[in-house]
């Protein structure tokens, strides 16, 4: 069996790689800045380079790390909680409800009057989803019920977003909604970082705290209960943690799909199947994946920048299919 040391080894390796990639991402952008300008600009330089580094590239990198960590750890926690390798924040409807909140803000023009209304309402959407999921996961806490409720929420949110685009008052509103739904870290600012960071931090803490309970749950609900784990409160803890972390990051980046699905699977071969050992590696791996993908979209000569959410979906869907095929082989 894989031991604790492999977990720490993985964390160390991932952290080192993430730091290197994150630093490299600062050097890659559209304005042709020399290495010197990048470094001066980053550390208090005034002028154009300073603005580009401090107000555009640095927040972009931080948001990438933050949202990646939120998505990665949420995927790992949900896969542990639901004992289902296909679980991820998208499946639970939490990301979709956050998106719906953002769409509502754009549709009613609230984001024009109060720019911060968009992320704020998106987070409310995620919390509402978490509330509904918690209420659904009543006393006879069936995992299946939770998944089905999540799927229903995700579809309801998708239907309402389509409705908003259908009834949109003008083509500009539609275009803004579509842009937002594609998910991107493009042209974000520190304002967004400050807005999302506290919620992501609390979410991450709640999820990290759930590790031991998730380990017990791998033995089944009854066995976990006999070990003194409160199954229902674990469900609620994880759901709230995911809502805070994912809701806050979706609120500022739009929908970045499949990160929560892919990352835990990539980490699992290194740390084994204990959910608790998967949580931090998935958080760091998620941060690495998103920052790397966000750097890649700036390098791909695609004309208009490839939207990050589109890019991760293009990687994620084949991965998802491969996963399904692999599962089928294992079942047979």
């Amino acid at each position: 069996m894989l031991g604790r040391s492999s977990e720490f080894g993985l964390i160390a390796a991932l952290t080192a790689t993430t730091l290197v990639v994150a630093a490299a991402s600062l050097f890659i952008g559209y304005a042709p800045l020399a290495t010197r300008e990048v470094i001066d600009g980053l550390f208090g330089g005034a002028g154009t380079a300073g603005i580009i580094m401090q107000d555009i590239r640095l927040p972009r990198m931080i948001l990438g790390l933050m949202s990646g960590a939120a998505l990665g750890i949420s995927g790992a926690a949900l896969q542990g909680l639901l004992r289902n390798p296909l679980a991820e924040p998208g499946v639970m409807g939490i990301a979709a409800c956050a998106s719906l909140g953002a769409v509502i803000a754009i549709y009613f023009g609230l984001s024009k009057e109060f720019p911060l209304a968009l992320p704020a309402i998106a987070m409310l959407g995620a919390l509402a989803a978490a509330g509904i999921l918690s209420a659904m996961s009543g006393r006879d806490n069936g995992i299946l019920i939770l998944i089905l409720a999540g799927v229903a929420l995700a579809n309801l949110a998708a239907a309402l977003m389509a409705l908003a685009m259908n009834l949109a008052p003008n083509p500009w509103a539609v275009s803004e909604i579509i842009y937002w739904l594609m998910g991107s870290l493009k042209d974000r600012s520190m304002e967004e970082v400050y807005l999302a960071a506290p919620f992501v931090a609390v979410g991450l803490a709640l999820l990290a705290f759930s590790g031991r309970a998730l380990d017990a749950l791998t033995l089944g609900d009854e066995a976990a209960s006999s070990l003194g784990i409160k199954v229902l409160s674990t469900q609620r803890l994880v759901t709230l943690g995911v809502a805070l972390a994912v809701g806050a990051s979706v609120a500022v980046t739009g929908a970045i799909a499949f990160v929560g699905l892919i990352v835990p699977h990539l980490c699992r071969p290194f740390v084994g199947h204990m959910p608790s050992r998967l949580l931090w590696p998935s958080a760091i791996g998620g941060a690495l994946l998103v920052v790397a993908a966000d750097t890649a979209v700036r390098l791909v000569p695609s004309g208009p920048e490839l939207m990050l959410g589109v890019f991760t979906s293009l990687i994620g869907v084949p991965f998802f299919l491969w996963l399904v095929f692999k599962l089928r082989r294992e079942v047979q």
């Binding site: 559209y30 154009t48 493009k186 042209d187 004309g303 208009p304």
Partner: peptide
């Protein structure tokens, strides 16, 4: 600052080209 007829201009380039 961008290829094609319609597209998006990165904010960095708006700032740099002023």
């Amino acid at each position: 600052l961008m290829p094609g007829s319609y597209g998006t201009v990165p904010l960095e380039l708006v700032i740099a080209s002023a």
